[in-house]
């Protein structure tokens, strides 16, 4: 099968790289942006499985040339919508965090920190 256009493959890499990088930040708003970028990245990755630029999969106007594989398109559509739903939730969560902490950062887990600070086991059975 056709390999996809190189620029688009590189774009997938860039979207994933930047998306991951934003994801591992402490600010929840950046995490949201990271998710959006990753969503674009995965959509583009799916799109690249359809064999390259072609005519829209609409019956009837099939003119000259190859018609795109519609299945990835349908999956991308579903993914876009799911990402949208989850993003709204994440935003609401960011808002809630901001309400509690006056910032939107992901703090470390308190109990983990407490146990991390122990020097000796507290008890032996």
């Amino acid at each position: 099968m056709n390999t996809p256009a190189l620029v688009l493959v590189i774009t997938v890499g860039v979207l994933y790289g930047t998306g991951f990088y934003l994801l591992v930040q402490r600010s929840l708003m950046r995490v949201v942006l990271g998710i959006l970028l990753l969503g674009h990245g995965s959509n583009l990755a799916l799109l690249l499985t359809d064999g390259g630029a072609a005519l829209p999969p609409l019956l009837g106007d099939a003119g000259e040339g190859r018609i795109a594989d519609p299945l990835p398109h349908a999956m991308i559509l579903t993914a876009i919508v799911i990402t949208f739903g989850v993003t709204t939730f994440l935003l609401a969560l960011a808002y809630r965090v901001w309400l509690g902490d006056e910032n939107d950062e992901v703090p470390d887990d308190i109990e983990d920190r407490r146990i991390g600070a122990l020097a000796e086991p507290e008890d032996s059975a």
Partner: peptide, 21 residues
Amino acid sequence: TAVVCALAGIFVAGVLAASTY
């Protein structure tokens, strides 16, 4: 972190290319 993320991006793109191929 930046290196790990960049490598992850390259990896995804690479496997994608290999898979389509």
